[in-house]
Amino acid sequence: MDDIFGIPAPLLFGQLLLGLINGAFYAMMSLGLAVIFGLLNIINFTHGAQFMMGAFAAWMLLEWAGLNYWWALLLVPIIIGFTGVVLERLMISRLYKLDHLYGLLLTFGLGLIIEGVFRNQFGSSGLPYRIPPELQGAWDLGFMFLPIYRGWVVIAALVLCLATWLLIEKTRLGAYLRAATENAPLVQAFGVNVPRMVTLTYGFGVALAAIGGVLAAPIYSVNPQMGTNLIIVVFAVVVIGGMGSILGSIITGFGLGIVEGLTKVFYPEASATVIFVIMAIVLLARPAGLFGRA
């Protein structure tokens, strides 16, 4: 058996793959943040809570309505996305003319409130949610044992990321979006309803977080804190990738998942810190992020 840096090669490959799986979550989450920041200039700190709401909504659909995982995958982004639309109309839209800081404070506060409400209602130790029967079991890859569900998460995340990228870069709607990001009054002058587009974009970003939550429900404990653990890392991912850069957040998400995975083998104690070390280095060398425009 070959060793690489003192670690058996099969173990290393396994860790790379696991890193890629975690990276899939980072990519999906940071993508939603990037889309929202790109158009709304809002740093959406409620994103972690919306991810958690996605997982809880999947649980509620199953327990209260008897709707299985596949229905949840379809319905949850619509439901949670709609709550995002309501939130944008009622509160966030009032802050566009103010400094970034106000949007950050509002969304951060909302995130805490939502988390508190769920904790009060459901406690902190979490709820059980099973892997759908179609995706149970595992593939033996020779160097490791890969649960089918984890493979599915990577594929689903890749497809979603790619579709979002195509939507924004290659379609007419995406062109409007990009144009509104550059100069909203001008686009509005051409007869595009920019406020509605902004609202729907926020809803779309939130829906991405909610799908992330549904995908996470069977593998992580469905508890009110599940988003908090993720959101800080995801913000670091967005900063490293470059605020508002779509492709940047996807590539950085997957890349940092792998870096984190490797850290878990070589020095596990630092696995929660390594991403922030990278963030500090990137901010010193390229303040706009790896893919951002200065």
Binding site: P8, P10, L11, G14, Q15, L18, G19, I21, N22, M144, R150, Y220, S221, M226, N229, L230, I232, G261, K264, V265, P268, E269, A270, S271, A272, T273
Partner: peptide
């Protein structure tokens, strides 16, 4: 053994695979 950062860890698969190895 592996020591993982508390309370910032929610994915244990990496440690479980190491344990198995």
């Amino acid at each position: 053994s592996v020591k993982y950062p508390f309370p910032a860890t929610s994915d244990f698969s990496s440690f479980l695979v190491q344990a198995q190895a």
